[in-house]
Amino acid sequence: MSNKRQKILIVFGTRPEAIKMAPLIHDLKKLPNEFEVIVCVTAQHREMLDQALSFFGITPDIDLNLMKSGQTISGLVASVLASVAQVIEGKQPDMLLVHGDTSTTLATAMAGFFAGIPIGHVEAGLRTHRMMEPFPEEFNRQVVSKIARWNFAPTEGNRSNLLSESFEDASITVTGNTVIDALFLALDQIDRDPAQVNSITESLSRQLPFDWRSERFALITGHRRENFGDGIKQICKAISALAKDYPSVHFVYPVHLNPQILWPVQDLLKGYANIHLIDPLGYPEFVYLMKHCFVVLTDSGGIQEEAPSLGKPVLVMRDVSERPEAISFGTVKLVGTKSEAIIHGVKELLDSESAYQKMAQQTNPYGDGQACKRIIEVLRGVHAK
Protein backbone atom coordinates (compact mmCIF):
# COMPACT_ATOMS: atom_id res chain seq x y z
CA MET A 1 0.00 0.00 0.00
CA SER A 2 1.22 3.51 -0.77
CA ASN A 3 2.57 5.39 2.24
CA LYS A 4 1.19 8.64 0.93
CA ARG A 5 -2.19 9.62 2.31
CA GLN A 6 -4.79 10.31 -0.34
CA LYS A 7 -6.10 13.85 -0.12
CA ILE A 8 -9.87 13.82 -0.64
CA LEU A 9 -11.76 17.03 -1.29
CA ILE A 10 -15.48 16.70 -0.52
CA VAL A 11 -17.70 19.54 -1.77
CA PHE A 12 -21.43 20.07 -1.17
CA GLY A 13 -23.82 22.94 -0.63
CA THR A 14 -27.32 21.88 0.44
CA ARG A 15 -28.84 20.26 3.50
CA PRO A 16 -29.69 16.97 1.74
CA GLU A 17 -26.10 16.70 0.51
CA ALA A 18 -24.77 17.41 4.00
CA ILE A 19 -26.99 14.72 5.51
CA LYS A 20 -26.05 12.12 2.91
CA MET A 21 -22.32 12.88 3.01
CA ALA A 22 -22.03 13.21 6.81
CA PRO A 23 -21.62 9.49 7.59
CA LEU A 24 -19.08 9.15 4.76
CA ILE A 25 -17.06 12.07 6.11
CA HIS A 26 -17.06 10.57 9.61
CA ASP A 27 -16.04 7.13 8.34
CA LEU A 28 -13.23 8.50 6.16
CA LYS A 29 -11.88 10.49 9.10
CA LYS A 30 -11.59 7.25 11.07
CA LEU A 31 -8.76 6.31 8.65
CA PRO A 32 -6.31 9.21 9.14
CA ASN A 33 -3.31 7.15 8.03
CA GLU A 34 -4.92 6.59 4.64
CA PHE A 35 -6.96 9.70 3.91
CA GLU A 36 -6.70 13.42 4.47
CA VAL A 37 -10.26 14.74 4.28
CA ILE A 38 -10.95 18.34 3.27
CA VAL A 39 -14.60 19.43 3.57
CA CYS A 40 -15.68 22.42 1.47
CA VAL A 41 -19.21 23.83 1.50
CA THR A 42 -20.63 26.30 -1.00
CA ALA A 43 -23.63 27.17 1.22
CA GLN A 44 -26.06 26.89 -1.69
CA HIS A 45 -28.50 26.53 1.25
CA ARG A 46 -27.16 28.55 4.16
CA GLU A 47 -29.31 28.18 7.26
CA MET A 48 -30.60 24.68 6.49
CA LEU A 49 -27.09 23.51 5.63
CA ASP A 50 -25.73 24.85 8.91
CA GLN A 51 -28.39 22.98 10.90
CA ALA A 52 -27.32 19.66 9.39
CA LEU A 53 -23.61 20.37 9.84
CA SER A 54 -24.17 21.25 13.49
CA PHE A 55 -26.21 18.13 14.22
CA PHE A 56 -23.66 15.79 12.64
CA GLY A 57 -20.72 17.62 14.22
CA ILE A 58 -19.05 18.61 10.96
CA THR A 59 -16.99 21.79 10.75
CA PRO A 60 -16.10 22.64 7.14
CA ASP A 61 -12.46 23.32 6.39
CA ILE A 62 -13.56 25.79 3.70
CA ASP A 63 -16.83 27.74 3.62
CA LEU A 64 -17.31 29.57 0.33
CA ASN A 65 -20.58 31.17 1.50
CA LEU A 66 -21.83 31.73 -2.04
CA MET A 67 -25.56 32.06 -1.38
CA LYS A 68 -27.05 35.37 -2.53
CA SER A 69 -30.63 36.60 -2.48
CA GLY A 70 -32.34 36.11 -5.84
CA GLN A 71 -29.45 34.09 -7.24
CA THR A 72 -30.03 32.48 -10.63
CA ILE A 73 -28.98 28.93 -11.48
CA SER A 74 -26.49 30.27 -14.01
CA GLY A 75 -25.05 32.71 -11.49
CA LEU A 76 -24.70 30.03 -8.84
CA VAL A 77 -23.03 27.55 -11.20
CA ALA A 78 -20.58 30.24 -12.35
CA SER A 79 -19.73 31.21 -8.77
CA VAL A 80 -19.23 27.62 -7.63
CA LEU A 81 -17.14 26.75 -10.70
CA ALA A 82 -14.78 29.69 -10.21
CA SER A 83 -14.53 29.31 -6.42
CA VAL A 84 -14.00 25.55 -6.36
CA ALA A 85 -11.39 25.86 -9.12
CA GLN A 86 -9.42 28.11 -6.76
CA VAL A 87 -9.82 25.62 -3.91
CA ILE A 88 -8.55 22.79 -6.13
CA GLU A 89 -5.58 24.88 -7.23
CA GLY A 90 -4.70 25.69 -3.62
CA LYS A 91 -5.28 22.24 -2.06
CA GLN A 92 -4.20 19.98 -4.94
CA PRO A 93 -6.44 17.04 -3.93
CA ASP A 94 -5.87 13.51 -5.21
CA MET A 95 -9.59 12.93 -5.67
CA LEU A 96 -12.85 14.82 -5.47
CA LEU A 97 -16.19 13.56 -4.09
CA VAL A 98 -19.55 15.09 -4.98
CA HIS A 99 -23.09 14.03 -4.28
CA GLY A 100 -26.26 13.76 -6.29
CA ASP A 101 -27.58 16.38 -8.66
CA THR A 102 -27.43 19.93 -7.29
CA SER A 103 -25.98 22.99 -9.00
CA THR A 104 -23.06 22.73 -6.57
CA THR A 105 -22.46 19.14 -7.69
CA LEU A 106 -22.48 20.05 -11.38
CA ALA A 107 -20.14 23.03 -11.04
CA THR A 108 -17.77 21.23 -8.66
CA ALA A 109 -17.48 18.23 -10.96
CA MET A 110 -16.75 20.54 -13.88
CA ALA A 111 -14.00 22.26 -11.88
CA GLY A 112 -12.49 18.89 -11.02
CA PHE A 113 -12.71 17.71 -14.62
CA PHE A 114 -10.99 20.83 -15.93
CA ALA A 115 -8.22 20.38 -13.34
CA GLY A 116 -7.72 16.70 -14.16
CA ILE A 117 -8.81 15.51 -10.70
CA PRO A 118 -10.56 12.10 -10.57
CA ILE A 119 -14.17 12.44 -9.43
CA GLY A 120 -16.29 10.11 -7.33
CA HIS A 121 -20.04 10.60 -7.79
CA VAL A 122 -22.04 9.47 -4.76
CA GLU A 123 -25.69 8.64 -5.60
CA ALA A 124 -24.99 8.12 -9.27
CA GLY A 125 -27.26 6.66 -11.93
CA LEU A 126 -30.63 8.09 -10.93
CA ARG A 127 -32.67 8.91 -14.04
CA THR A 128 -36.11 10.03 -15.13
CA HIS A 129 -34.91 10.14 -18.77
CA ARG A 130 -36.78 13.45 -19.09
CA MET A 131 -34.27 16.29 -19.17
CA MET A 132 -36.71 18.86 -17.79
CA GLU A 133 -38.11 16.68 -14.97
CA PRO A 134 -36.78 17.47 -12.49
CA PHE A 135 -35.13 20.65 -13.71
CA PRO A 136 -32.17 21.17 -13.53
CA GLU A 137 -31.36 18.02 -11.54
CA GLU A 138 -31.76 15.50 -14.38
CA PHE A 139 -29.31 17.49 -16.53
CA ASN A 140 -26.88 17.89 -13.62
CA ARG A 141 -26.65 14.21 -12.73
CA GLN A 142 -26.31 13.07 -16.33
CA VAL A 143 -23.40 15.45 -16.92
CA VAL A 144 -21.66 14.53 -13.66
CA SER A 145 -21.91 10.81 -14.49
CA LYS A 146 -20.14 11.42 -17.79
CA ILE A 147 -17.09 13.00 -16.14
CA ALA A 148 -16.88 10.84 -12.99
CA ARG A 149 -14.26 8.11 -12.67
CA TRP A 150 -16.20 6.30 -9.93
CA ASN A 151 -19.98 6.07 -10.00
CA PHE A 152 -21.38 4.97 -6.64
CA ALA A 153 -24.86 3.76 -7.56
CA PRO A 154 -27.41 3.20 -4.79
CA THR A 155 -29.26 0.35 -6.55
CA GLU A 156 -28.95 -2.24 -9.31
CA GLY A 157 -31.49 -0.18 -11.25
CA ASN A 158 -29.16 2.82 -11.10
CA ARG A 159 -26.31 0.59 -12.28
CA SER A 160 -28.45 -0.59 -15.22
CA ASN A 161 -29.15 3.03 -16.16
CA LEU A 162 -25.42 3.73 -16.35
CA LEU A 163 -24.67 0.55 -18.28
CA SER A 164 -27.37 1.43 -20.81
CA GLU A 165 -25.56 4.73 -21.33
CA SER A 166 -22.34 2.82 -22.18
CA PHE A 167 -20.50 3.40 -18.91
CA GLU A 168 -17.87 0.78 -18.13
CA ASP A 169 -18.98 -1.75 -15.56
CA ALA A 170 -15.69 -1.32 -13.69
CA SER A 171 -16.52 2.33 -13.02
CA ILE A 172 -19.78 1.45 -11.21
CA THR A 173 -20.21 0.16 -7.66
CA VAL A 174 -23.64 -0.59 -6.19
CA THR A 175 -23.48 0.68 -2.61
CA GLY A 176 -26.97 1.35 -1.29
CA ASN A 177 -27.83 4.94 -0.45
CA THR A 178 -25.83 6.83 2.17
CA VAL A 179 -29.06 8.45 3.36
CA ILE A 180 -29.88 5.17 5.15
CA ASP A 181 -26.47 5.31 6.87
CA ALA A 182 -27.29 8.91 7.87
CA LEU A 183 -30.75 7.98 9.15
CA PHE A 184 -29.41 5.19 11.36
CA LEU A 185 -26.60 7.46 12.58
CA ALA A 186 -29.08 10.22 13.41
CA LEU A 187 -31.52 7.98 15.25
CA ASP A 188 -28.69 6.37 17.22
CA GLN A 189 -27.29 9.80 18.08
CA ILE A 190 -30.72 11.00 19.26
CA ASP A 191 -31.62 7.85 21.20
CA ARG A 192 -28.29 7.83 23.07
CA ASP A 193 -28.89 11.35 24.36
CA PRO A 194 -31.98 11.74 26.60
CA ALA A 195 -31.42 15.50 26.75
CA GLN A 196 -31.64 15.69 22.97
CA VAL A 197 -34.80 13.58 22.93
CA ASN A 198 -36.35 15.97 25.47
CA SER A 199 -35.21 19.01 23.50
CA ILE A 200 -36.64 17.68 20.22
CA THR A 201 -39.90 16.63 21.88
CA GLU A 202 -40.35 20.00 23.55
CA SER A 203 -39.57 21.87 20.34
CA LEU A 204 -42.10 19.88 18.32
CA SER A 205 -44.74 20.12 21.03
CA ARG A 206 -44.42 23.91 21.08
CA GLN A 207 -45.16 24.01 17.35
CA LEU A 208 -47.86 21.33 17.17
CA PRO A 209 -51.02 21.78 19.28
CA PHE A 210 -51.93 18.08 19.32
CA ASP A 211 -50.40 14.88 20.66
CA TRP A 212 -48.23 14.05 17.68
CA ARG A 213 -46.82 10.99 19.45
CA SER A 214 -50.18 9.20 19.52
CA GLU A 215 -52.60 10.87 17.06
CA ARG A 216 -52.61 10.14 13.33
CA PHE A 217 -50.99 12.77 11.14
CA ALA A 218 -49.68 13.13 7.62
CA LEU A 219 -46.25 14.72 7.23
CA ILE A 220 -46.01 16.88 4.11
CA THR A 221 -43.08 18.37 2.23
CA GLY A 222 -43.20 20.19 -1.09
CA HIS A 223 -40.57 22.36 -2.72
CA ARG A 224 -39.78 21.07 -6.22
CA ARG A 225 -39.32 23.69 -8.92
CA GLU A 226 -41.58 21.77 -11.31
CA ASN A 227 -44.42 22.09 -8.78
CA PHE A 228 -44.29 25.90 -8.69
CA GLY A 229 -47.57 27.42 -9.80
CA ASP A 230 -50.42 25.03 -10.51
CA GLY A 231 -48.68 22.03 -8.94
CA ILE A 232 -48.50 23.53 -5.46
CA LYS A 233 -52.06 24.85 -5.79
CA GLN A 234 -53.29 21.34 -6.63
CA ILE A 235 -51.39 19.93 -3.64
CA CYS A 236 -52.93 22.54 -1.33
CA LYS A 237 -56.39 21.85 -2.75
CA ALA A 238 -55.97 18.17 -1.90
CA ILE A 239 -54.73 18.84 1.63
CA SER A 240 -57.60 21.22 2.39
CA ALA A 241 -60.16 18.70 1.11
CA LEU A 242 -58.62 15.93 3.19
CA ALA A 243 -58.55 18.14 6.28
CA LYS A 244 -62.28 18.73 5.91
CA ASP A 245 -63.10 15.05 5.30
CA TYR A 246 -60.90 13.79 8.18
CA PRO A 247 -61.18 16.30 11.04
CA SER A 248 -59.51 13.88 13.49
CA VAL A 249 -56.42 13.50 11.28
CA HIS A 250 -53.76 16.21 11.39
CA PHE A 251 -51.72 17.50 8.47
CA VAL A 252 -48.28 18.84 9.36
CA TYR A 253 -46.50 20.88 6.72
CA PRO A 254 -43.02 22.36 7.41
CA VAL A 255 -43.23 24.98 4.67
CA HIS A 256 -40.23 25.74 2.47
CA LEU A 257 -39.22 29.40 2.65
CA ASN A 258 -39.11 29.91 -1.13
CA PRO A 259 -41.85 32.49 -1.87
CA GLN A 260 -43.05 30.33 -4.80
CA ILE A 261 -44.07 27.74 -2.16
CA LEU A 262 -44.56 29.78 1.00
CA TRP A 263 -47.05 32.33 -0.35
CA PRO A 264 -49.56 29.98 -2.01
CA VAL A 265 -49.38 27.53 0.91
CA GLN A 266 -50.04 30.27 3.44
CA ASP A 267 -52.82 31.69 1.27
CA LEU A 268 -54.61 28.37 0.65
CA LEU A 269 -54.08 26.40 3.86
CA LYS A 270 -54.20 28.88 6.71
CA GLY A 271 -57.13 28.76 9.13
CA TYR A 272 -57.77 25.00 9.30
CA ALA A 273 -57.75 23.59 12.85
CA ASN A 274 -56.05 20.35 11.77
CA ILE A 275 -53.57 21.81 9.25
CA HIS A 276 -50.37 22.93 10.93
CA LEU A 277 -48.05 25.12 8.85
CA ILE A 278 -44.72 25.33 10.63
CA ASP A 279 -41.25 26.62 9.84
CA PRO A 280 -38.72 24.28 8.20
CA LEU A 281 -37.37 21.79 10.72
CA GLY A 282 -33.83 20.82 11.54
CA TYR A 283 -32.84 17.32 10.47
CA PRO A 284 -33.17 15.67 13.91
CA GLU A 285 -36.61 17.21 14.46
CA PHE A 286 -37.75 16.14 11.01
CA VAL A 287 -36.48 12.58 11.44
CA TYR A 288 -38.19 12.30 14.82
CA LEU A 289 -41.46 13.62 13.40
CA MET A 290 -41.21 11.23 10.44
CA LYS A 291 -40.71 8.37 12.92
CA HIS A 292 -44.08 9.21 14.53
CA CYS A 293 -46.17 10.13 11.47
CA PHE A 294 -48.81 7.95 9.83
CA VAL A 295 -48.00 8.69 6.21
CA VAL A 296 -45.66 10.95 4.22
CA LEU A 297 -46.73 13.15 1.29
CA THR A 298 -43.72 14.56 -0.50
CA ASP A 299 -42.04 15.65 -3.70
CA SER A 300 -38.60 15.12 -2.12
CA GLY A 301 -36.14 12.45 -3.16
CA GLY A 302 -34.39 11.66 0.10
CA ILE A 303 -37.59 11.15 2.06
CA GLN A 304 -38.65 8.43 -0.40
CA GLU A 305 -35.49 6.60 0.65
CA GLU A 306 -35.65 7.27 4.40
CA ALA A 307 -39.31 6.79 5.30
CA PRO A 308 -39.54 3.10 4.27
CA SER A 309 -36.81 2.28 6.81
CA LEU A 310 -39.21 3.63 9.44
CA GLY A 311 -42.16 1.67 8.06
CA LYS A 312 -43.93 4.76 6.71
CA PRO A 313 -45.83 4.69 3.40
CA VAL A 314 -44.85 7.49 1.03
CA LEU A 315 -47.06 9.17 -1.55
CA VAL A 316 -44.96 11.07 -4.07
CA MET A 317 -46.57 14.21 -5.46
CA ARG A 318 -44.71 14.24 -8.77
CA ASP A 319 -45.53 13.02 -12.26
CA VAL A 320 -42.28 11.11 -12.73
CA SER A 321 -39.64 9.75 -10.36
CA GLU A 322 -35.94 8.93 -10.67
CA ARG A 323 -36.44 6.44 -7.82
CA PRO A 324 -38.55 3.67 -9.43
CA GLU A 325 -37.20 0.98 -7.08
CA ALA A 326 -39.40 2.14 -4.21
CA ILE A 327 -42.43 2.13 -6.47
CA SER A 328 -41.61 -1.41 -7.66
CA PHE A 329 -41.07 -2.60 -4.07
CA GLY A 330 -44.34 -1.01 -2.97
CA THR A 331 -42.95 1.33 -0.28
CA VAL A 332 -43.79 4.37 -2.41
CA LYS A 333 -46.72 5.27 -4.64
CA LEU A 334 -46.50 7.93 -7.36
CA VAL A 335 -49.73 9.96 -7.14
CA GLY A 336 -48.83 12.97 -9.29
CA THR A 337 -49.87 16.54 -8.57
CA LYS A 338 -53.57 16.45 -9.42
CA SER A 339 -55.68 16.99 -6.32
CA GLU A 340 -58.07 14.11 -7.06
CA ALA A 341 -55.24 11.57 -7.26
CA ILE A 342 -53.60 12.84 -4.06
CA ILE A 343 -56.92 12.70 -2.21
CA HIS A 344 -57.58 9.16 -3.45
CA GLY A 345 -54.11 7.98 -2.41
CA VAL A 346 -54.37 9.37 1.11
CA LYS A 347 -57.95 8.17 1.62
CA GLU A 348 -56.99 4.64 0.68
CA LEU A 349 -54.32 4.54 3.39
CA LEU A 350 -56.52 6.20 6.01
CA ASP A 351 -59.50 3.93 5.33
CA SER A 352 -57.86 0.57 4.61
CA GLU A 353 -55.63 -1.12 7.16
CA SER A 354 -54.61 -3.77 4.61
CA ALA A 355 -53.61 -1.15 2.03
CA TYR A 356 -51.60 0.65 4.70
CA GLN A 357 -49.80 -2.46 5.95
CA LYS A 358 -49.04 -3.58 2.40
CA MET A 359 -46.90 -0.45 1.97
CA ALA A 360 -45.60 -0.15 5.53
CA GLN A 361 -44.22 -3.69 5.76
CA GLN A 362 -42.24 -3.78 2.51
CA THR A 363 -38.44 -3.98 2.46
CA ASN A 364 -36.57 -0.75 1.80
CA PRO A 365 -34.79 -1.12 -1.56
CA TYR A 366 -32.26 1.61 -0.78
CA GLY A 367 -29.92 -0.35 1.39
CA ASP A 368 -28.85 -1.64 4.75
CA GLY A 369 -26.90 1.30 6.16
CA GLN A 370 -23.53 0.05 4.85
CA ALA A 371 -23.20 2.27 1.78
CA CYS A 372 -20.30 4.30 3.19
CA LYS A 373 -18.35 1.13 3.94
CA ARG A 374 -18.69 0.03 0.30
CA ILE A 375 -17.61 3.44 -1.02
CA ILE A 376 -14.55 3.46 1.21
CA GLU A 377 -13.59 -0.05 0.06
CA VAL A 378 -13.35 1.32 -3.49
CA LEU A 379 -11.34 4.35 -2.39
CA ARG A 380 -8.99 2.18 -0.32
CA GLY A 381 -8.44 0.03 -3.39
CA VAL A 382 -7.42 3.15 -5.29
CA HIS A 383 -5.10 4.09 -2.42
CA ALA A 384 -3.46 0.66 -2.49
CA LYS A 385 -2.41 1.05 -6.14
Rank of each mutant, 00 (worst) to 15 (best):
V11R: 00
P16R: 09
M21N: 07
P32V: 08
E36C: 07
E36Q: 15
D50F: 03
F55Y: 09
D61R: 04
N65T: 12
M67G: 12
M67S: 09
A82Q: 12
Q86L: 06
V87C: 01
K91G: 05
Q92M: 12
G100Q: 12
L106D: 06
A111N: 07
F113K: 13
G116W: 06
P118Y: 10
H121D: 08
P136F: 01
R141Y: 02
F152H: 00
E168V: 12
T175P: 07
L187V: 14
L187H: 05
D188G: 12
S199D: 15
L204D: 06
P209I: 02
P209Q: 08
E215D: 15
F228M: 07
G229D: 01
G231V: 09
Y246K: 09
S248Q: 15
Y253S: 06
H256N: 04
D267L: 13
Y272C: 12
P284D: 10
F286W: 07
Y288V: 09
L289R: 03
V296W: 08
L297Q: 03
E305T: 06
S309M: 08
E322L: 03
P324F: 10
A326R: 03
I327M: 02
G336K: 04
E340M: 12
H344K: 15
T363W: 07
G367W: 02
R374T: 11
L379V: 02
A384L: 11
